[in-house]
Design a protein around this nucleic acid. Structure first.
Lengths: 337, 337
DNA sequence: ATGAAAGCGCTAACAT
DNA sequence: ATGTTAGCGCTTTCAT
């Protein structure tokens, strides 16, 4: 790790110029054959690696992109990361992870990383932009792709799933099982993803002529223990539900955990549907009925879009919509009684 | 996002030199008061951010560290990441994540990132070094801290838990419940972490005078579906176990899932103990009895050690040992019959 | 096909 | 207290 040979070292050792070495090492096709091979050989032998700071400074690019999520702790993002990473690596880019924890300051920090040259572009998976005067304008033409979530009026290209449609399908599945009293544990409104899933729930309920009593739409934050708490509150209502559509699997785990503590059987007494299909959702007991998203594909699509933008392509006008699947497993059953 | 003002722009606008601006912005205490405030004000107004490539090139530091794990997909690492990140940020460092997937090429790649200046130091959480001639020597004096795992003979400082002791405690808990036929689903041997946990298992068994029949120590890889498969194999043995100590929670989930498919009750028929205490382990059904590690603390300790090394401190000779706790929950019960 | 030279934006000697 | 200058390691004109 001691000696960090530089281009000059290689050049001197071979009696050529630094420029020639640089050209040889970058496959420019401008270096003739006797020299070319010798340079490459010596470079390998000396274990040469170009200094990224110098290169980035010179080329004005970092060959890196930033993927910003609200919580790296959520395993849901990891499959997406893999899709992003595979696509990025193939194009010579590396991927940096950003974690906002829903903190506006940290969000700003990642935008700053773009400006200060840490990364060339960004894949945003947070539901909002930092709320600052003029912020939207200041980033409007940056190479940014929004995935999963939706940020309106900023003109960014989107990779999404049909949250509303998927939610409706999930709730219709419950309705098809004869449930009438169906509650919805939502994500944080007014973020669009949460609102869309809730709209899907409402649409299905309305289409079936079912009422949504007061207290049937508690608002959560996608975290396990919140699911637990909101479930408890649902069962303090005069008319508790017989089925619950939860906005993500992590909260669904909390809901089911709490139902068990309340002595209720899943799916005998209460049916539960989640959203995400985590790698644990099937091994969970009972295996969770949930909406599966093509995560790797979402990552790939977002990164490809970003690569297009980085290559100077136009920003796609209409969002890419990827399909979801309802996985019916063990947490849903016909309505009791 | 368009205009990226540089130091020169600020300098010209105020009629001072670039050096003064640089000094003012870096809190060097070398700039007098009328100038100081005006520079800062203009910098903020122009939304100035220093170009990291230029700065890193000049200072020969990236102010970034690399945290390399075998699988970002494992939620276990995320708590550690938070500890690392918090400590790093407080010291002005950012954290890059590396994911090896047990792939030797990717391991090498991350070491290369150190050499090419992407990062100044590294926290390694993979159980081995790339197997190449002279590799150990070539990285011997790099600022590297090994956490969780153990890499012998390379001289790196370590942050660890007492894997062997914790494993022994876990198995003694099972023995205390009257179990005699106790199997162990291990991690990948011969990696030291896996071997240590297995040694703890063996020590406890031997101390209690219990035999370890053929086939009672299947070797896994910490992945869910492997736990499932190995569990199936255990129950094809002539004398299946009544208790299983699994080397991590993720495989334990797979084991329990498979037990259920085999029609066996947990913990009525078979007791299971895991290792890690994932955020889902308590919400799992039955709530998983497992060994809990101080994850955030591990991250903090590792990063602090790395910061010391980066600041020119000596590499600590003896490893930091952090305490574990056995969380007895719902997957262990007295031996049947 | 190769070399010479300039310069990316910043910081740190070295002046003054 | 501030300015001048050089240079980090690389790529890329512009010459030859």
């Amino acid at each position: 790790m001691n000696e960090r040979p530089k281009i000059k070292d290689i050049a001197e050792r071979l009696g050529v110029s630094a420029a020639t070495v640089s050209r040889a090492l970058s496959d420019s096709g401008l270096v003739a054959e006797p020299t070319l091979s010798r340079i490459r050989e010596v470079a390998r032998e000396m274990n040469y690696r170009p200094n990224v700071s110098a290169r980035n400074l010179r080329t004005q690019r970092a060959m890196a992109v930033l993927m910003v999520v609200r919580d790296v702790g959520n395993p849901f993002y990891l499959e997406i990361l893999k899709g992003v990473e595979a696509t990025a690596r193939a194009a010579g880019y590396s991927v940096l992870m950003g974690n906002t924890e829903n903190d506006s300051d940290r969000e700003v920090e990642y935008f700053d990383m773009l400006r200060d040259g840490h990364a060339d572009g960004m894949i945003l998976m947070t539901g909002k932009l930092p709320a600052r005067d003029g912020f939207v304008d200041s980033v409007a033409d940056a190479p940014i792709v929004v995935a999963l979530e939706e940020i309106r009026d900023a003109g960014f290209p989107h990779v999404m799933i049909d949250n509303e449609g998927a939610a409706r399908d999930a709730v219709e599945h419950l309705i098809g099982l004869g449930h009438k009293r169906i509650a919805h544990v939502s994500g944080p409104v007014p973020e669009i993803m949460s609102v869309s899933r809730r709209n899907g729930y409402r649409a299905a309920m309305q289409a079936a002529g079912l009422a949504i009593p007061d207290g049937y739409e508690p608002v959560g934050d996608y975290l396990l223990h919140t699911g637990q708490r909101l479930c408890r509150e649902l069962f303090e209502l005069p008319q508790p539900p017989t089925a619950i559509f939860v906005a993500n699997d992590e909260m669904a785990f909390g809901v089911i955990h709490e139902l068990r503590r309340l002595g209720l059987d899943v799916p005998g007494d209460v049916s539960v549907v989640g959203f995400d299909d985590l790698f644990l959702s099937e091994a969970f007991y009972p295996p969770l009925t949930t909406v599966s998203q093509p995560r790797t594909e979402i990552g790939r699509a977002a990164m490809n879009m970003l690569l297009d933008m980085l290559a100077g392509g136009l920003t796609p006008r209409k969002p890419a919509m990827l399909p979801t699947t309802l996985k019916v497993r063990g947490t849903t059953a016909p309505a009791p009684k």
